[in-house]
Design a protein around this nucleic acid. Sequence first.
DNA 1: TTATAAATGACAGCGGTGGTCAATTTGTAA
DNA 2: TTACAAATTGACCACCGCTGTCATTTATAA
Lengths: 342, 342
Amino acid sequence: MKVTINDVARLAGVSIKTVSRVMNNEPSVKKATQEKVSAAISELNYQPNAAARNLAGTRSYSIGYIYDNPNAYYVIDMQRGLLEACRKHGYELLIHPTNAKSAQIVQEVIDLVQHARLAGLVLTPPFSEMPEIAEALERIGVDFVRIISGSTPSPKLTNCVLVDDFTAAFKITNHLLELGHTDIAFLCGDEEHSSSGERLAGFKAALTKRGITPNPKYIVPGSYSFESGVKGAKYLLELVHKPTAIFACNDEIAAGALFSARLSQVEIPQQLSIVGFENSPFSRQTWPPLTTAHQPNSTIAMQAAELLFRRSRPGQQQGISAEQPVFIPELLVRESTAACPA
Amino acid sequence: MKVTINDVARLAGVSIKTVSRVMNNEPSVKKATQEKVSAAISELNYQPNAAARNLAGTRSYSIGYIYDNPNAYYVIDMQRGLLEACRKHGYELLIHPTNAKSAQIVQEVIDLVQHARLAGLVLTPPFSEMPEIAEALERIGVDFVRIISGSTPSPKLTNCVLVDDFTAAFKITNHLLELGHTDIAFLCGDEEHSSSGERLAGFKAALTKRGITPNPKYIVPGSYSFESGVKGAKYLLELVHKPTAIFACNDEIAAGALFSARLSQVEIPQQLSIVGFENSPFSRQTWPPLTTAHQPNSTIAMQAAELLFRRSRPGQQQGISAEQPVFIPELLVRESTAACPA
DNA sequence: TTATAAATGACAGCGGTGGTCAATTTGTAA
DNA sequence: TTACAAATTGACCACCGCTGTCATTTATAA
């Protein structure tokens, strides 16, 4: 029933050690043998037993994903990407939802890693933005990759996959500018999330580049929630000098803003343009569907995992890798934006 | 650094065999020794090496969760419940997102189970409603628990955790009836999901019990999506004789209906009451927040996992267990429902 | 032909479980 | 109290399926 390395060795006429070598891409295996073994492997549809590998070997075959994010779509997407990468490379994924605000969060993470013998960890916000976590992991010598908001690779951001919120926000803002809007408001997400700050910075930069001074009254603090969007838009639409476009820091906020606009009898997009960010299912569950920036979470996650695998393989140089992939969410124009009304 | 069974044995002053006995709840261990060992275990914070256990033992320490559900909140909740149960019992969770409509889905599931040496599987819709999956699993002798929509335990539904959509829908409908509504419409979810049928049945039963014959014009086919809610409500609000309340088969549909009502300048809840089902974050991201039925997904998942564990433990009778926990989603009254307008 | 490098295999674990059997402790009835 | 059965515990071995180490064989170059 179950195929072991012995079966493969027997069929290929070699020792189990050689099969092991082939499985692990070790050097010094003759090409002919390599092919013989590979043939046997695929003929028997052999898949190494993860438990045995973990037990016997020095390296680990599982990575961990720690999360604490209210956005289920984000988590699911990340997970899907990680799983895909894991499947491809024969790794397992350990998922660990937890509370980032717990006092013993660092210890919890350390326990997790040590107990599960993880090859590495993928960290997303908020964990990726907690210096104490990174320090602890470095201290105990566990590899990790952080997915964070940032535009330019730098030595400080090793082990990072960057999501260039700045540039994406810049582009979105440009889209609005090109439609003739100049009175553009910005609905912020949570302050603690650097993504909100980055997006705001990109927004301001785009305005400034066109010679427009960002109006402080149009920059509304808030959080990544529908309600925050409702409130923020309400405030904006009650101003004497209303904006003609709203840049919401994510789709949920945008959906809230859309809702608020409807309540105030403001026609979207004829009287007011609204954009979101993320391309979550939310952005398609509104009417009109939201213009937004597509963040390829699943792909980002895959990349992060691949980075981890590449580094954990023996023979590769360990430690600091210069690689810092940068993803730029792409503008996705839908029906919630239109030319600025005269 | 890492604690093994030997360390525990040394500290407790017993043999490793006894530690093993304690770890596995085997009989014939004196209470005193049991406590001594437990103390040592917790002092050292010992956790058995999963790889070694899997490799050496005959039983398995991981369960699988297969999913293919567009509702990320549902999946995340289920996952959280499963993980909690797993953590408590020292199991691991293998998650496997896949495509339920794939032609080789049965083979894929079998491969997964056999390769990963799973103790069992937790199936949610649509997998829990696919007879071919259940048959295949029974054939290869793998334990599983299905989470399905149903109200009454029956021999046919062994291995099931039931979610009583019928009764919940009955209660929701009663809530509307008590508010004085009699012209109540029903927006269906996907036909293939038995949950939609069950909810509809509960709805009809409640009406009938009050002597109201369900009006076929008020029963609108659809799917579990925002858009479907928009369309369904639009249709209803264009009828000459409009309903005064809408029962949407889930929160997403309800959100769509809410949206549609807004478009038609219908005041919620003054002119029209709308209820959802599920208590997903969606139901709080609308205005007004939705009256709905709370489905405790995380708890349901925990129960399902516990059922699996209980059965997979040696010493317990294997196979058919009479247990069929039934969960009844509870009515949650919020602001989207009000008394029937005169 | 011999020194050297490349390819391969033998073998000992990794950290537990399962089984067998003997030794020890405990409880119990006479 | 004693004897005896029963309950606990431990010692020991094989083994799960694979990897790490090192010795051995084979190919290649000098």
